[in-house]
Design a binder for these strands. Sequence first.
DNA 1: GTCTGTGAAGGGCTTCACAGCT
DNA 2: AGCTGTGAAGCCCTTCACAGAC
Lengths: 266, 266
Amino acid sequence: MSEPAPDPTPEVAESAPEPADHDDAGVESAIDADIPRPAVARLAGYLYVLRSFSQRGVLVASSGELARAAGVNPAILRKDLSHVGANGVRGVGYDVGRLTARISMALHTDNVQLVALAGAGRLGQALLAHTGFGRGFQVVALFDEDPALIGQALTPSGPTIGPLSDIDKIGSSDAPQVEIGVVATSDDHAQRAFDAFVAAGVRQVLNVTPVSLSTDADVVVRQVDLALELQVLAFQASRPSSSGAAERLPSGRRRPSVMGEETVTA
Amino acid sequence: MSEPAPDPTPEVAESAPEPADHDDAGVESAIDADIPRPAVARLAGYLYVLRSFSQRGVLVASSGELARAAGVNPAILRKDLSHVGANGVRGVGYDVGRLTARISMALHTDNVQLVALAGAGRLGQALLAHTGFGRGFQVVALFDEDPALIGQALTPSGPTIGPLSDIDKIGSSDAPQVEIGVVATSDDHAQRAFDAFVAAGVRQVLNVTPVSLSTDADVVVRQVDLALELQVLAFQASRPSSSGAAERLPSGRRRPSVMGEETVTA
DNA sequence: GTCTGTGAAGGGCTTCACAGCT
DNA sequence: AGCTGTGAAGCCCTTCACAGAC
């Protein structure tokens, strides 16, 4: 048996103006936050898959279909969904709209989170573009040390870039409460921007610099280093690829990981 | 999916049959590639820490110092270093220069790896800037679909941007052998760029789009999604911070993870 | 019959703790 | 005494396999 038409056709036909229909039939059970961290990362990925399914007009999907689209094992997908109290229909599958709503609620993506971004360089701008999607984030403050950038606005309706010394202003009572700070500055300003975020009361920070930030405060820091990912990839290149045969695979074999997903298809 | 040229030439960059027991100044012992994936990611991070130590004139560092700077547990740092055959001096610590060389060799960072980048937008440019450091990567090919970018060069000495349809040219014999492909395009071009990379013989791909790439070929794919990281961070925000007390910590308490490092300092 | 939900098994990684060298 | 290197314990997560609902 071979792969059932891995459609190399053009991407999603944009001719499906699918409204995001949120119909929850009394979804109420508040799920505990005892979701394993790797599962949280995967659940966020399922949201993206579900969105594409919805745009294609798919109303119901089985765990197998979702898993293949997300590049994970069907069993772990079902287990992940069980963490958010998903209600699939046996013998049928999952309702795409309802499942989307369920995961969004569990990940608190249904409420818009306010983000402050330190570092408006290329990486910061890339992040700004990716968050603007509709994923539940809104960048309400921008900071940078480049004099050419200070005072400008990257988006027509977006905030004006201020110097890093203005980070403390997001802690003032009249300013909107920023939930997440992103450190995308140059390496030598990363710790300083981070300290300012902490002083301003930000409790979660995404650090996209290679600098390891340190603090005494109660802050959750998540670090993503693109160059480090390249190094990890380069190392795995040198690993022997197991059996010499195999050009085709009877069933997709994937090896997922926390977030730096490693999908070895062999 | 037509392989223009199968890979009859498996290039074994390094073949080290037997570990050498004697290592004088010449670091020679070949370490087996049985390094756990999370350890590889941390080792790459240690390189960054060691570089900063070296710049500050530090010649010797203990596992405790290195671990604090890297934000990890001292025990796991020692175990990570044991995987690369590190030779620390008991009662003293590690020689910064020697340890750097040792890790670089183990991660194959001592040899420059050639990279092809599809997608020269903000994210691609950010990656380009980060790899240019001296981390052992060189971007030798750039591709994008934006007519305004095609034909231009982002760096004075860098390659000229070509259309995505030119990706197959990196597979030609006269072109330099690209080891790693990076997919940083818009979502609707990601799979296409990926397929082109695979057809051109690229065996490792870093995917920084949220699209889950699928293939039948023997390719290692690593995915990093910045927006997904934000969602994971936002979720962990809502977790109860365990004990209500704790403003100070007697000893650093860290919770490391694979790569999306989560450092809860409490 | 199909597909979900989940207990149980299995594996990998982190942490502990201590032996051993300097 | 101080610090490294490592076996062993423990934990978390993934995978398997099957009972149960439609």
